[in-house]
Nucleic acid binder design. Sequence first.
DNA 1: CAACAATATAGTAATATTTGAATGTTTTTA
DNA 2: TAAAAACATTCAAATATTACTATATTGTTG
Lengths: 112, 112
Amino acid sequence: MNQVVHRFKAEFFKTLAHPVRLAILEHLRSGEKSVNELQVLLGADQSTVSQQLARLRAGNLVDTRKEGTTVYYMIRDPLVFDLMDVAREIFNRQLISHQALLRQVSEEVPLP
Amino acid sequence: MNQVVHRFKAEFFKTLAHPVRLAILEHLRSGEKSVNELQVLLGADQSTVSQQLARLRAGNLVDTRKEGTTVYYMIRDPLVFDLMDVAREIFNRQLISHQALLRQVSEEVPLP
DNA sequence: CAACAATATAGTAATATTTGAATGTTTTTA
DNA sequence: TAAAAACATTCAAATATTACTATATTGTTG
């Protein structure tokens, strides 16, 4: 795999690598949302939401649809949700192995 | 989904969001590799490889095994490869739709 | 033990990303 | 047409990441 491809893929992952952007994508699972709806759902201010949406657009992760002054955002490729599901699974497994480790440590050094 | 969780997940994606780290992970698909092997495979220098490996360790994506002075790195959870496969698929689809777009544009404005 | 090999870490300048406040743009409506 | 609503963009300061160079650390071998 050549360097250029890895650079593009790294960009793709960078686009995902932000808490607000991940939260936005989670909310888009249930269908398109307006900027205002996202703003409310996230409890974030307009500028923040709009900025992170711009980043998602730049990464081609979302599409938009305009209706009057309202802009609706939707996921471009639903496979992104599959990706997030796999990530969640990896994440859960990590938590479980951390727990196992903690349990082991606490058994080795029992409380007085 | 609460903010803290999204922060952790963002960290996870950040760990993936670097060309050298992605290349390292690709090479680990075929099994454990020593730092030196990776260095050769990537054509990168020692410090770069070791640094990015440190980042992968910090993100709990890899495990290590030491044999003499040689350290072997391996993937911690093979599900990461599944994740990379899904990412690749998303990536390919994007390329295809870009191509379609380009073709469309070139039809609309035919070359002289 | 001295020299070497393999890997890790530190330090730092360059670069990129994020945050927050302020300002623009577009569309609708009174 | 002026005001309001809904978004988008800009700008600068604060943070975080990267790339490089140099230096440590650890284990092996003559």
